[in-house]
């Protein structure tokens, strides 16, 4: 087992102690020999030789110590360099982690988009079918009533029950009836008006008006014909409404940007009020 070598400081102090002891002994021996006038052959010479040897060691060690001092300075500089490199590495590590996070997010979003694209590709509908359907609903009176429509006319002045219920408004109405979005008031259902609406689309319109009156909206738009109904909700309260569409009248309005064709509707309500 290797014995750890002593430090330079310990060796220097040890040699210095030796020098002190040897020089004291030498002076004492010399002083004694002077006072007693007795020669001490050999002993003082031996001590002197040891003193010279230790003095040489001391000088060598002092040179080593000076060199070690310079090496120490170099080591301090290197330690500062190591600290600087450590700081740089930590900074780089932080930046790499941020980049990893950003890239992971981007990859996740890209995968989600690819999934959406694939889904859309699988459920694609040809444009021809959409155009055919548009022609079919436009050929009948499914989107608006004929201009000369009067009550009793068998031609339908509104979309059929099935079409209305399969549309977005129909879904919204179902959701509202189920209380999902809470727009339909509970007292309206309790009043039993909705089941009493003769055509279902009347009921749907009534649903819409329930929405409108509840939310104090003024306008209901039904695409694709910009089918607009103007309602003044101050004429009646929601609990009294029983609406029957009795007439359509086309109205053309030109704004700065567009020319719109509206249909002004006449309604008959249960209270006898007529609203234009």
């Amino acid at each position: 087992m290797a014995v750890p070598s002593r430090s330079t400081k310990e060796r220097l102090l040890s040699v210095l102690d030796d020098l002190e002891v040897l020089s004291r002994e030498l002076i004492e021996i010399l002083a004694l020999s002077r006072s007693q006038k007795l020669p001490q052959p050999g002993e003082d010479t031996q001590i002197l030789e040891l003193l010279v040897q230790r003095d040489g060691e001391f000088q060598e060690l002092m040179k080593v110590a000076q060199k070690q001092g310079k090496v120490h300075q170099e080591m301090q500089l290197l330690e500062k360099e190591v600290e600087k490199r450590d700081s740089d590495i930590q900074q780089l590590q932080k930046q790499l982690k941020e980049a990893e996070h950003t890239l992971a997010t981007a990859v996740y979003q890209a995968k989600e988009k690819l999934k959406s694209i694939e889904k859309a590709r699988k459920g694609s509908i040809s444009s021809e079918e959409i155009i055919k359907y548009a022609h079919r609903i436009s050929a009948s009176n499914a989107v608006c009533a004929p201009l000369n429509w009067v009550p009793g006319d068998p031609r339908r002045p509104y979309p059929t029950d099935l079409e209305m219920r399969s549309g977005m408004l129909g879904h919204m109405s179902n959701l509202a009836s189920n209380g999902v979005n809470g727009h339909l008031p509970g007292d309206a259902l309790a009043a039993g008006r909705l089941p009493g609406m003769p055509p279902v689309c009347f009921g749907l319109f009534a649903d819409c008006f329930e929405f409108e009156l509840k939310q104090i909206f003024k306008t209901v738009s039904c695409f694709p014909r910009r089918f607009v109904i103007f309602v003044d909700d101050s004429l009646f309260s929601p609990s009294e409404i029983t609406i029957c569409i009795i007439n359509f009248q086309p109205v053309t309005r030109t704004t700065e940007q567009n020319k719109h064709c509206f249909y002004k509707l006449s309604f008959q309500v249960s209270s006898g009020n007529k609203v234009h």
């Binding site: 430090s7 400081k9 102090l13 110590a65 070690q68 090496v71 120490h72 300075q73 080591m75 190591v82």
Partner: peptide
């Protein structure tokens, strides 16, 4: 001697530490 820097180690140990630092 007590104030001299870098003499708490032997020259061999100091050289070893210096090499380690350079390598780092």
């Amino acid at each position: 001697i007590s104030t001299m820097p870098g003499i708490d180690k032997s020259p061999e140990e100091q050289q070893q530490q210096l090499q380690t630092l350079r390598e780092q």
